[in-house]
């Protein structure tokens, strides 16, 4: 570690010393502890822990070096380390990357995400009990971090991992989608994340409430049943129109005050809500009712993850 120190005495700078600090650190460098195996996407790597020979996911987070480590990041990592839940991917380690001002988060690794799970095991996903069990696990994870007032902000099938042997589901990517430091890391070839975004986020209203995650869970719920995204628009721009065409264009009754939040509402043609029973065939009536509540347009009226877990759909 090289440290440049300005020594000040009686207010005047005497000298600028360049000192080499040899810190006998127990802090081993990234490469001593982990071996990189493959690049998954920009800033995300698959690695191998050399101590436990466990496969891990490494995520690099960079930040500007003018005001030290950002406070939001410190708080978030402290919190993530304290979080322990069977349905949340565990943060195993945090390693400093000395050369670049960045840190590397080390997560436990799981191979199959929900997108590929649906593709590989379409028959398993047809069993209503499987869907119910997976949805319950998603909601358990979501209500757990909502109890810490954490908003995930990027729940989508690609961030939802499943162990095919036990059908255990784990959600990942807490720090990733929200930190400002990596705003352009969205890989265009990757699954279209905007399909799972809540309408209030799409109108860009900086409404960052826990309700946005509930919407995403609703989208995933429908997708698990039909095995394709419910709101699959061609671009983020068209996403809102797509949502309106299915759930109905908001009116003063369905979403009080929406016309004030969103000035361009008049551009959209008026759509009536479609029948979800036809769009999501095969789902039992209690499931349709829950889906309605998860995909409620007005975030204030949307069900919470905790309430959803108590829904009739799960009562058998």
């Amino acid at each position: 570690m090289n440290i440049k120190v300005g020594v000040y005495s009686s207010g005047r700078s005497i000298s600028d010393l360049r000192l080499r600090v040899s810190i006998h650190s127990s802090e081993s460098s990234l490469m001593e502890k982990y071996k990189l195996i493959a690049k998954i996407k920009k800033g995300v790597f698959q690695g191998l822990c050399l101590l436990s020979s466990q496969t891990v996911t490494l995520k690099q987070l960079g930040f500007p070096d003018n005001e030290g480590v950002p406070g939001s990041l410190i708080k978030e990592i402290t919190l993530l380390q304290a979080m322990r839940h069977a349905n949340i991917i565990k943060l195993i380690d945090v390693v400093n990357h000395q050369e670049q001002s960045s840190i590397v988060l080390v997560y436990e690794s799981m191979e199959t995400n929900l997108t590929s799970f649906i593709r590989i095991y379409p028959k398993v996903m047809k069993i209503p009990r499987t869907i119910k069990e997976l949805l319950r696990q998603i909601l358990l994870a979501v209500s757990y971090y909502h109890s810490f007032d954490i908003v995930h902000g990027g729940i989508k099938p690609a961030n939802t991992f499943i162990d095919p042997a036990t059908n255990t589901l784990k959600i990942t990517d807490f720090v990733w989608p929200r930190t400002l430091f990596n705003s352009n890391t969205e890989d265009p070839n990757e699954e279209l994340g905007f399909c799972y975004k809540a309408p209030e986020i799409l109108v860009e209203h900086k409404q960052f409430s826990t309700a946005i995650d509930v919407w995403s869970v609703g989208c995933i719920f429908a997708e698990m049943v039909t095995q394709k995204p419910l709101f699959s628009a061609t671009s983020e721009f068209h996403q809102l129109a797509k949502i309106f065409s299915i759930v109905g264009t908001p009116s003063e009754e369905t979403w009080p005050g929406f016309s004030r939040i969103y000035r361009y509402l008049h551009i959209y043609s008026h759509c009536k809500p479609k029948d979800l029973r036809k769009l999501v065939p095969g789902l039992e009536p209690a499931g349709i009712d829950l889906l309605h509540k998860l995909l409620y347009m007005d975030p204030k009226g949307r069900i919470t993850a905790r309430q959803a877990l108590e829904h009739v759909y799960f009562q058998n």
């Binding site: 570690m1 440049k4 120190v5 003018n66 410190i74 945090v94 001002s101």
Partner: peptide
């Protein structure tokens, strides 16, 4: 600032 940042990182990893 950049030296403080380095030390911040060292403190946090310690």
């Amino acid at each position: 600032a950049k030296n403080i940042q380095k030390m911040e990182l060292l403190v946090m990893s310690t």
